[in-house]
């Protein structure tokens, strides 16, 4: 998965800001491009340290917007606040976008963010390398 440094940083910043609750959102990109370009923070309707769910009405609005712009969710991200950045059983049971990169951020360590990316297809988790592009911001 290739992702621009500025978007990577926005995902991590969102996860930090919502800690100890789980943060969630997507990065949209042109259909079929596999390029995560438009960062969209979503509300965690559960406001929970162990669970997340997109607010259903916000999701409808954002999905419509993507439809109008010929975009799709290239990245679907959420944070784990006390455990590693690896998909849980619950994450796998809900995963329903075979084309999406499922990005997990762990905020359990206040100093170092752990961001990892996966494909989740038919219940099977495949980790993939994350290539961060663009200028470093000194992290």
């Amino acid at each position: 998965m290739r992702i621009d440094r500025s978007i990577y940083d926005q995902i991590v910043a969102h996860a930090r800001r919502d800690h100890p609750d789980e943060a969630c959102g997507i990065v949209a990109g042109p259909v079929g491009s596999d390029r995560p370009e438009r960062f969209i923070e979503m509300i965690n309707a559960e406001r929970s340290p162990t669970f997340y769910r997109f607010d259903s009405l916000e999701q409808l609005k954002v999905w419509r917007e993507m439809d109008d712009r010929d975009e799709e969710p290239v990245v679907i991200y959420h944070s784990h606040t006390a455990t590693e950045a690896y998909p849980s059983r619950t994450d796998v049971s809900y995963a329903s976008e075979p084309g999406a990169h499922y990005v997990l951020v762990s905020t359990r360590d206040p100093e170092t963010a752990e961001l990892r990316s996966y494909r989740i297809l038919d219940g099977e988790i495949t980790e993939e390398p994350v290539e961060v592009t663009g200028a470093p911001t000194g992290r």
């Binding site: 997340y52 999701q59 409808l60 999905w63 606040t81 849980s88 619950t90 809900y94 329903s96 976008e97």
Partner: peptide, 12 residues
């Protein structure tokens, strides 16, 4: 009528 997959999960 619109059907969307719920996007949800969690650490447990």
């Amino acid at each position: 009528v619109t059907v969307l997959p719920a996007v949800a999960g969690g650490s447990r």
